Simulated scan of single mutants.
Amino acid sequence: MENQKVFCISCFLKPYRIFKDKFPLLSFISFRLITMLVILFILGWALFALMALAPGDIVDQMMQQQLMSQTENGGGSGRDSIFSEEQLAKMREEMGLDKPFTIQYFRWLNRVLVHHDLGVSLISKAPVSFLIKSRIVNSLVLNLISLVFITIFSFLLGVYFSSKAGTKVDLAATFFALFFHAFPGILLLILLQLFASVTSLFPVTAYPDFPASENPLKFIFSYSYHIFLPLFASFLGGIGGTMRMIRSTMLDQMGMPYIMALRSRGISEKRVYLNHAFRNTLNPYITGSANLLASLFSGSLVLEIIFSYPGIGRLMYDAVMQQDVNLVLANNMFISALVLLGMTISDILLAIVDPRIRYGKN
């Protein structure tokens, strides 16, 4: 029996090794995509488990809202005056909440994968896919703009200050980078909002009060004006660590023997910096950019709440507070898929840039 198992495993591994040897990059990409799907599957199951462990459910939330509404209107109070135990049990059965969380998860997977249906919000009764589509674009625009600005200025400043290592300018830049990197993001957002409120130079909300379809050109200018302070806070929080990483990587490269060899051949310092040392800073940045994007998405939750920005983070916060299972799960899975996809893309870019990765062990 053991010989048969070993034979079956070897039958599977042999084609895989042949495929890996002939197509190393494609094999690397396939392995990363499969790993991403497995992680998403486990993450979804864990989310269902956490929601099941949370006290109460959406039916209890609805009952409490009805009780509060009846009390405010001067009606009687008491659980039996609104819902009976049979009615509550029937509501849980209709929503599928009477089943174990594992069964609920596989039912949700079947609905998503087979029918391409994310369900409806248990509170607003609107389709979950519509709610996510209406918010995800705003969060993507905000975080991608932050990532682009952080990337551009991190490379410019990191390369510049690496050439000024040890000078007063470099020490001052390092101090401010560490200061803003360690400064609490939520406190920075609150201070900026107070600044906007006191000075009236900027709006206290981060989104225009009219739709883009009304006047697209006016909306772009208004959006840029509204988003400036939140974007500035995100930029200050992200540039410190990234700039210091690029600066330290450049300094490490400038001390390598191949740099000394290039200088001994009379190659200009500009070419040494930009054509040789700079290219070798891409690997650590590509690896760190996925983590940076993940931190931007996680940080945008607080940003969207404080500045009333209609993004996916604020939608998820409202869904968690209301225990809207369908919306919470879809939000978390969607954001997790974006983060994992970013990490997978960074791994693929690393494999393209550095052949040693794709020819190495997965």
Rank of each mutant, 00 (worst) to 15 (best):
K5Y: 11
V6K: 15
F12K: 04
L37G: 02
I39R: 01
I42Y: 10
A46S: 11
L53W: 14
G56A: 08
G56S: 07
L67A: 08
G75V: 02
R79K: 11
R92T: 10
E93M: 04
T102N: 07
Y105A: 00
V114P: 00
L122Y: 12
S129A: 13
L131R: 08
N138H: 10
L140P: 00
L142D: 06
I145F: 15
S146Y: 01
L171N: 15
A173H: 10
F183K: 02
P184G: 03
G185S: 12
I186E: 08
L188E: 07
L201F: 11
V204W: 07
F210V: 08
L217D: 10
F221C: 07
P230S: 06
T242Q: 15
T242G: 03
R244M: 12
M245F: 08
M245N: 02
M254K: 11
Y258Q: 01
M260H: 12
L262Q: 10
S264T: 08
K270S: 13
L274R: 02
N275V: 02
I286Q: 09
I286A: 06
L293M: 14
L301K: 04
E304I: 04
I306R: 01
Y309H: 10
L315C: 05
M316L: 14
Q323T: 12
N331S: 13
I345G: 00
S346G: 01
P355D: 02
